[in-house]
Amino acid sequence: MIPAAFEYHRPSDVAGALSLLSTHGDDARVLAGGHSLIPMMKLRMASVEHLVDLQDVAELKGISVADGHVTLGAMVTQHSLIESAELAEAAPIVREAALQIADPQVRYMGTVGGNVANGDPGNDMPGLMQCLDARFTLQGPNGSREVAARAYYEAAYFTARADDEILTQISFAVPVGGYAYEKQKRKVGDYATAACGVVLAKEGALCTSASVAMTNLADVPVWSEAAGAALVGTDCGPEAVKTAVAAAVADIDPAEDNRGPVAFKRHVAGIIIGRAISRAWSRA
């Protein structure tokens, strides 16, 4: 498995990277950790003439928690997400999800930006970011703009990002209440058969807000507004969970693959969503 030849660029800042993208148009691809792109290049299923490696762009590597907001640079690795004490404090669901991605080596290289940017339905961070109602910053030749994670994904590998833009930053409000990221996979290193992220808040005995999003159960991540709504105002007891699960499952559209047929995936999705809600509630 040998990739085709390409020109390699390693800009030291975002401006430099954007200028390369402008020059080379859709012949250019941005390289973050490379653990999605490089295997595709080796299998010659992705052809890239100009590879723009972002490893030297220091401005994309920070994690900050301030004023109730979490901001992640696109080049922050999964490993750094796991190791960050302030992130574990502010948004432990991120660590919980990141630990379920791939394996240790891949997590050292794999970045949160790469994971959310390319629109691979198997990636876990897009669903998580929809759960957290994150916003993605896209920088392009005409400046920067923000897109909500819930509006970013159009179809598998098709996103709101233009070819000459780079996804530079992810931000979200520090979630309150309970959380869970539940994932069923065949083995370490596999994509999800079904995965679900839940954050919910509790006041007294009742749920005051809830967000439910799912991974690899459609060609895009699925945030189920109805599922969240079904939980709010309830005690997240068995009946409420059942209603929420039904709502969430109504929003997914899984495809058959080696992990199993559609009926199986829909059923397992329901189980995983239910478990995620219950675990989040137990932590709320």
Partner: peptide, 27 residues
């Protein structure tokens, strides 16, 4: 395996364990 699943190619790079079959020379 050449697709970053098996780890036989693992080396340490800049303090990280990496699968060197999935790292370009230029990187």
């Amino acid at each position: 395996c050449e697709t970053s699943h098996c780890g036989a190619c693992t080396v340490e790079m800049n303090g990280m364990s990496v699968k060197s079959c999935t790292v370009f020379a230029a990187q």
